[in-house]
C-alpha cells in the first residue's frame, strides 16, 4: 500500500512499547499490531486522535504517502 504507517518509529522515539500504547489509547494490542505492520485497510479518526494524543504527535507524523 502507498500509505506508510510510521508507528514503529514514533514508539521508538518515545521509548514506548506497543503494549503500553495499547493501554493508554484503549485499543487492543491486536488492532495496534495490524496498524503497525501496515495490514490495516482503514483507520478511524477516533483511533488516530487517541494515538496522536498518547504520542503527542500530528497525524502526519504517523502516516506518510509513498509514490508507487
Amino acid at each position: 500500500m502507498a500509505i506508510l504507517v510510521k508507528l514503529d518509529d514514533l514508539l521508538h522515539a518515545r521509548r514506548m512499547t506497543l503494549s503500553q500504547l495499547a493501554e493508554q489509547v484503549d485499543i487492543t494490542l491486536a488492532n495496534l499490531s495490524i496498524l503497525k505492520t501496515g495490514k490495516a485497510k482503514a483507520i478511524r479518526f477516533s483511533t488516530l486522535e487517541a494515538i496522536c494524543q498518547a504520542l503527542d504527535c500530528q497525524p502526519g507524523d504517523l502516516l506518510a504517502h509513498e509514490k508507487e
Binding site: 488492532n31 495496534l32 496498524l35 495490514k39 490495516a40 485497510k41 482503514a42 483507520i43 478511524r44 483511533t47
Partner: peptide, 9 residues
C-alpha cells in the same frame, strides 16, 4: 461492508 470493517482499526 464487513470486509471493509475487518481491516479498520
Amino acid at each position: 461492508l464487513r470486509a471493509d470493517l475487518e481491516g479498520t482499526v
